[in-house]
Amino acid sequence: MPQKLDYLPETASQTAGPYVHIGLAPGAAGFDIYKQELGWDIAGPNARGERIRVEGIVMDGMGSPIKDVMLEVWQANADGNYAHPEGGGDVEDGFRGWGRVITDFETGEWGFDTIKPGTCPGRNVGPQAPHLNLWIVARGINIGLNTRMYFEDETEANAKDPVLNLIEWERRRATLIAERTERDGKTVYRFDIKVQGEDETVFFDV
C-alpha cells in the first residue's frame, strides 16, 4: 500500500430547501428575529460609480419562475477591487460587494440595488469585463449554481473577456449579458436566468 494523503474531503452540499428564508432572510419567512439581516446593502453609501438596479427571474425547465430561489451576488467596486485582502486594492468605507436577495413569492421576481463594477484583472492575459458573480440556491438545486452577469453596454470589454471567450458556443455567451433599460430615470439591468431548457444560462464550475 502506498502512503496515505492526509487531505480532508470537502463536505457535500445539500439543497437549501423551500425554507431557506428562515435562516437567511427571516423577514420574508414572516418573522422578525435579528437586529439586522445581512446582504441587503451591497455597495454602501460611499461607493463611487454608477448606481444601478438589477432585476430578473429564475426559470425552471418548463419556463416557470422558481419562486423559492435565493441569489447571492459578489462584485468588485467601480475601480475593480473586491472588498477582501486579496481583492486588488482599497474599497470605499461601507462597500462590502456582497448581497443576498430572494424572490417575490407570487411572481418570482427578484431585484437589488448596487453600483456597476469596474474591470478587474484576469488570470493571465488582459482584464475581465465588468461582471457580477452570482450563486443560486433553491429547493431542487442540489449544489449551488455559479454564474456571472455581464453588462450589455460593455461591448468592447465583453468581446475580450477571457471567461466569456472560454464558452465555445458563441450563442450561449449571450445568456450571461444583461439588458440595459431605463425606468424613472434610473438604470435597470434585466437578467433572467434559465436553469434548464432552451437558451439555458451558462453555469460555471469555479
Binding site: 439543497t15 425552471d60 425547465g61 418548463m62 422558481i66 459578489w74 468588485a76 473586491y82 472588498a83 477582501h84 486579496e86 481583492g87 486588488g88 462590502r96 460587494g97 456582497w98 478587474c120 484583472p121 484576469g122 488570470r123 475581465q128 461582471h131 458573480n133 433553491a138 429547493r139 431542487g140 438545486i141 442540489n142 449554481l145 455559479n146 456571472r148 477571457p162 471567461v163 472560454l166 464558452i167 450561449r172 436553469v195 434548464q196 431548457g197 439555458e200 444560462t201 451558462v202 453555469f203 460555471f204 464550475d205 469555479v206
Partner: peptide
Amino acid sequence: TSVSRSPQYSLISLQNSVSEITGPT
C-alpha cells in the same frame, strides 16, 4: 424537484481569478 431545476448542459470549468478567490468578510 431536481428534475426541472437541473441544468442539462455541462458546467464550464473555470480556473480561479480574483473573482473566485475572494469573498465577503
